[in-house]
Design a protein around this nucleic acid. Structure first.
Ligand code: FES
Ligand code: FES
Lengths: 144, 144
DNA sequence: CTTATTTCGGATAAATTTATCCTATTTATA
DNA sequence: TATAAATAGGATAAATTTATCCGAAATAAG
């Protein structure tokens, strides 16, 4: 469904958000430990999230990654997925035709489109805030 | 969403079904042309479909791939996807946790599970028959 | 200014998926 | 029985994704 890179990116963003509520910056090392991911690869993905304004980074001593507390509620899962996996999940043909086109539909177009749209709405309506709060309260988990 | 192998497998099965209605067997070459896929790779995927009893093959001269006319309506998309991509799409965690477990859910578990289940139901309720008939009647397409 | 710390970014490597090639085996027909 | 046609399947190659490594650049603190 999502690429590994995207899975790591989502989990990393959630973890950064939980720490940002406490005013703490985090390093790729700490993130990788918390979400059980390869550190250097995770660092690469964080760069993509920085470029797409999902998280911000501070270089140098006492630096790290953080998310502005006031923005956590307005960041949607769709932004993260889009930043890492692009928009093929929102627009691409389920059977790999060059473009998903109403006028030239593949055999599963109608049915696939419905699922794809539900997924799109879900991602667009899910904020980093609710995901991070569920982690903080211990009702959901980032690893194992 | 689906692997390339799975996309080819689905399209191949649909094409074989359309020809089977006319009592014709088809070769990997003809299939690859009709669904715009690499021939040898498609042949490999067909082997998996044969092993999983989605299509049957006849070796030797005048051989080829076919699907028993009377079975086309009872073959579901889910069988094909399962034969090629396995069941991770039905049961796997959206964020890559080892298992999707109600008692140890990832942050997107509830929302992801709903989408995943819709997809599962869609695949289980879609028969090769309806997909093949739509191709035959020209309302949907297997390539471009 | 120097040093320690930390992200950035390019190069490389490993693993997986996608794709190709070639031979063996099977089968219908002459 | 010989031959041609067709799938089966193993070995290999290419492409993509995943993962690692290392030096450059930035920054806070002494
Ligand atoms: S054309 Fe395939 S999903 Fe729309
Ligand atoms: S635990 Fe992640 S989807 Fe169920």
């Amino acid at each position: 469904m999502f690429s590994k890179a995207c899975e790591y990116g989502i989990k990393a963003a959630i973890f950064i958000a939980t720490k940002s509520y406490e005013g703490e910056r985090v390093s790729p090392k700490e993130i990788a430990q918390e979400i059980d991911s390869p550190q250097a690869f995770t660092a690469k993905i964080l760069q993509a999230l920085v470029k797409n304004d999902v998280v911000s980074s501070v270089k140098g001593a006492y630096g790290g990654f953080e998310i502005d507390k006031s923005q956590i509620s307005s960041i949607k899962l769709s932004q993260i997925v889009n930043a890492i996996d692009g928009d093929s999940i929102y627009n691409g043909c389920g059977l790999g035709l060059h473009t998903c086109d109403e006028a030239h539909p593949c055999p599963v177009h109608d049915k696939f489109k419905a699922i794809r749209n539900d997924l799109k709405l879900m991602l667009e309506n899910t904020s980093l805030e609710e995901l991070a709060l569920n982690i903080k309260s211990g009702v959901s988990f980032l690893k194992v």
